[in-house]
Design a protein around this nucleic acid. Structure first.
Lengths: 195, 195
DNA sequence: CGTCTATTTGAATGTACTCAAAAGCGGTGG
DNA sequence: CCACCGCTTTTGAGTACATTCAAATAGACG
């Protein structure tokens, strides 16, 4: 199993921990493996934990009434993922999370996070910064997506996930930028008339 | 000028402050009035403060290369607003904020927030929760917007801002849900064939 | 190699846009 | 208090972007 080193590194960017604090934090983590195509979370679940990807690749998506999937976010190694609406309100969410590749994550339960905040208040700061970063990213995505043509949305995707667009099956990209796989295929194979 | 009572109320939902702490917090606030149509923030500005609306109505929007505005968020009384990407990275943002109606806000500068966190660490918690709430809202918006027809996006708008859709000029709603004003008009006046 | 999934291609359709012009509405000044 | 001006909304015709459905082709994996 992958070590949570990656997680400790990302924490140390924002707060400094003593070895003791680090160990206490590590004791709260629960490792988990998700096989390719396996569901981690589904619609109706109440999100009870924060999730950090150590290796592999997850996707979070909603399913509309016609059965079509819309990808909200990918999570490669080093990213957090989760339905924050459900986590925060403690109500059933409407998002699914599954693995595109075999993936290793660590989870921290809501309860553990409460304990963590009590014992090591510095972590309030870390999770604040985390949420603010994620918020900034969502604001960016909304602002760049609203009403822009698919070609431009594809461009933004490539910028945001430069390492993914090479290896990722095209249909996932289509789902992320909000077009059908057929249309994306046509778009990419068109005589490079306009960029 | 409106008193910041509304702000204190919203804080007290998440953390308890002594009178002394309250006063210290209040001493960091800077009130500001923005007249209808006046710009508060524009593309290229580096966001240096958190902004809370006491009364009135603000909008935050981006402008695409064709000059079209896309509204990211409305902020009626009791809401926070700001380009978090720019705030967080301290880089020029690409969002505008202006007033749809005469508006009163209070601002807290980044520096003051740092001082606040140092003096009253409880505020880390407050702003963490704030960011998480906002994040949940953005996740919801993305998930409900992606690839849904305009009719449904309009429905979601009405749910999110029930008080606004009555008084707000229609073209702003169009800009929020990502259609042209002409199209929204046609949509709303169509023989109520399909809800 | 065969099966399953992903991608490509094509034709017909639909949703939303553009451009243009008319109608409605609200405020302001004479 | 009415007339006018500017802004918003409506309406219509033509167009473009993206979808649907269907079928062929290509890849991946056991």
């Amino acid at each position: 199993m992958q070590s949570p080193l990656l997680l400790l590194q990302s924490i140390s960017k924002y707060i400094q921990l003593t070895t003791e604090e680090e160990n206490f934090f590590l004791s709260l983590l629960q490792p988990k493996k998700i096989r390719k195509k396996q569901l981690l979370t589904q619609e109706g679940d109440i999100n009870q934990s924060a999730k950090f990807v150590l290796s592999g690749l997850l996707r979070m998506y909603s399913v509309d009434k016609n059965g079509f999937e819309h990808i909200i976010q990918f999570a490669p190694a080093g990213w957090w993922i989760g339905d924050l609406y459900s986590y925060h309100k403690q109500q059933p969410g409407n998002l699914f999370i599954d693995a595109i590749e075999d993936t290793e994550i660590v989870e921290i339960s809501r309860n553990s996070i409460d304990i963590l905040f009590e014992k090591i208040p510095k972590f309030e700061r870390f999770f604040r910064i985390l949420a603010e970063n994620a918020l900034a990213a969502y604001q960016q995505r909304l602002s760049s997506n609203l009403n822009l043509p698919a070609k431009d949305r594809y461009g933004y995707f490539v910028e945001l996930y430069p390492s993914l667009f090479l290896s990722l099956p095209q249909k996932y990209i289509a789902s992320y930028i909000g077009v059908t796989p057929e249309f994306l295929s046509k778009m990419l194979n068109q005589p490079a008339s306009k960029k």
